[in-house]
Amino acid sequence: MASTGTAEKPRPRPLSPHATIYRVTLTMAMSIAHRITGVGLYIGVALLAWFLLALAGDATTFATFSSFIRSLVGQLLLFGFTWALFHHMLGGVRHALWDAGVGLDHPLRERLAQGTLIGGFGLAIIAWIIGYVVR
């Protein structure tokens, strides 16, 4: 490659177009959402670790956690955790189908993206209805 031996500056390399120049599509947004929910679930695991450690401690440490999780912020975090879990899970199933070469064509890939979006919220809401109504 660089066999000329002169000290001339290398020409800037051509860059491939990045995310910002493309029109936003549902499949693109769902790909981003898959990453965001994945990173968000890291926080969910930290919340789970707090819960388990608080429960492994005495009644006082558990009361601190309990009052936080029963607050509005805590309940929203917990709902977000279950939603992100279901959304990411369905997104993973979609990726598994794509790995198998299924669902890459136009009508089906849109349906799969819509299914992940609706399914994630649907499953989370159903789970919480069961959790609150059926004790």
Binding site: L48, A49, A56
Partner: peptide, 13 residues
């Protein structure tokens, strides 16, 4: 750290 903390807590419980 998170994995170890959770595992320790579950086993302790």
């Amino acid at each position: 750290a998170l994995g170890l903390a959770c595992a320790y807590a579950v086993l302790r419980i």
